[in-house]
Amino acid sequence: MLFWLRMLLLSAHFVLTSIIGLLIGLIRPFEPDNSRLCARLYSWGGRIILGLEIRTEVEALKQRRSPCVYVSNHQSNYDLFVMGTVVPYRTVSIGKDSLKYVPFFGQLFWLAGNVLIKRGHATQAKQAMLASTEALKEKDTSIWVFAEGTRNGGNNMLPFKKGAFQMAIAAGVPIIPICSSSYPKHMQLKKLKAGLIKIRALAEIPTKGLTLDDVPRLMQECFEQMQKTIAQLDRDVLAAR
């Protein structure tokens, strides 16, 4: 009963927040900080409805104003309510083109200045990446990327895609990994307290002076750091139960 009540409330919250976000986007279209504001709205209500406790170690992100590429693990559709808690100032994200067909949410996603990429369409994907690189260099905007490219279901991270790392090198901005503990398989949505999730931001990985030849090494370095951190966060969550 509690599970279905949560799903009903979460659906209502999603629709209401999407409408509010769309209004924000219409008032100030393509303002990059719209994404942070909307992410906070989704996560604030979402985590209360879901009964999640989210502990964050992201103090450095709150003070950051210079552009970078944030790389995060991607676990489930609930990431909107979980990772939305820590989206930094003037940060937009890259999403799949099909999002634009989601009523209200797709339109606010576009109006917030986020980048839509059509999977399997190399030319459009390249154009979107170029636009993202331009935003990093010229518009004082950071980019949030789920580097795996798809949800991993809370299992081990999937291999990273190159796009985020190519953008960071091309723009000469650092990469900042943001890790969330594994939660989809441990959430107990039939209980009042559904579980604990920990999020940690790691130290920035500089890219200045690197070339595209350095992409494989950069990807491996980031992957290993995040894999190690997620394993530690999982142990911390287990110990806190």
Results as ranks from 00 to 15, higher is better:
9 L>I: 15
141 T>I: 10
181 S>H: 03
129 M>A: 11
235 R>S: 12
210 L>A: 08
57 E>P: 08
145 V>N: 04
81 F>A: 02
177 P>S: 08
202 L>C: 09
96 K>D: 01
232 Q>M: 07
133 T>F: 01
182 S>L: 07
26 L>Q: 11
189 L>V: 13
108 L>R: 11
183 Y>H: 06
105 F>T: 07
30 F>W: 05
232 Q>S: 12
189 L>K: 03
124 Q>G: 08
43 S>Y: 02
133 T>K: 14
219 M>S: 03
196 L>T: 15
33 D>S: 08
72 S>I: 15
100 K>D: 08
6 R>Y: 03
136 L>N: 07
82 V>H: 00
42 Y>Q: 07
25 G>R: 14
121 H>W: 01
91 T>M: 10
67 P>M: 06
152 N>Q: 06
78 Y>M: 14
52 L>C: 10
88 P>C: 12
194 A>K: 02
20 I>P: 00
197 I>N: 02
235 R>W: 04
73 N>Y: 04
114 N>Q: 07
176 I>F: 05
107 Q>K: 13
134 E>G: 13
4 W>N: 07
47 R>V: 00
111 L>K: 13
106 G>Y: 14
31 E>V: 15
136 L>T: 10
51 G>I: 09
233 L>Y: 10
146 F>S: 00
26 L>S: 06
102 V>F: 01
48 I>M: 08
172 G>T: 08
59 E>L: 06
126 K>C: 01
223 F>D: 14
206 P>S: 13
219 M>A: 09
118 K>S: 15
85 T>D: 14
42 Y>D: 07
30 F>Y: 12
195 G>V: 13
153 G>E: 05
53 E>T: 15
192 L>D: 10
3 F>A: 11
240 A>W: 00
78 Y>K: 05
170 A>S: 13
151 R>P: 03
167 M>P: 05
2 L>N: 12
182 S>M: 12
115 V>A: 09
128 A>L: 06
154 G>E: 08
91 T>W: 08
33 D>M: 14
190 K>L: 11
151 R>V: 04
58 V>I: 13
79 D>P: 02
59 E>G: 01
161 K>T: 15
170 A>G: 10
104 F>G: 07
145 V>L: 03
102 V>G: 01
216 P>S: 11
226 M>D: 06
205 I>W: 02
11 S>V: 13
139 K>P: 06
142 S>D: 05
24 I>S: 13
188 Q>S: 04
36 R>F: 03
141 T>S: 15
227 Q>M: 12
75 Q>Y: 00
130 L>D: 09
165 F>M: 01
214 D>E: 05
224 E>T: 12
80 L>I: 09
22 L>W: 06
12 A>P: 10
232 Q>W: 00
201 A>E: 10
121 H>K: 07
114 N>K: 13
42 Y>R: 07
174 P>E: 09
117 I>Y: 00
137 K>T: 02
75 Q>A: 14
164 A>S: 11
147 A>G: 11
237 V>D: 06
88 P>I: 14
26 L>A: 12
224 E>V: 04
222 C>K: 09
194 A>C: 04
47 R>H: 09
21 G>M: 04
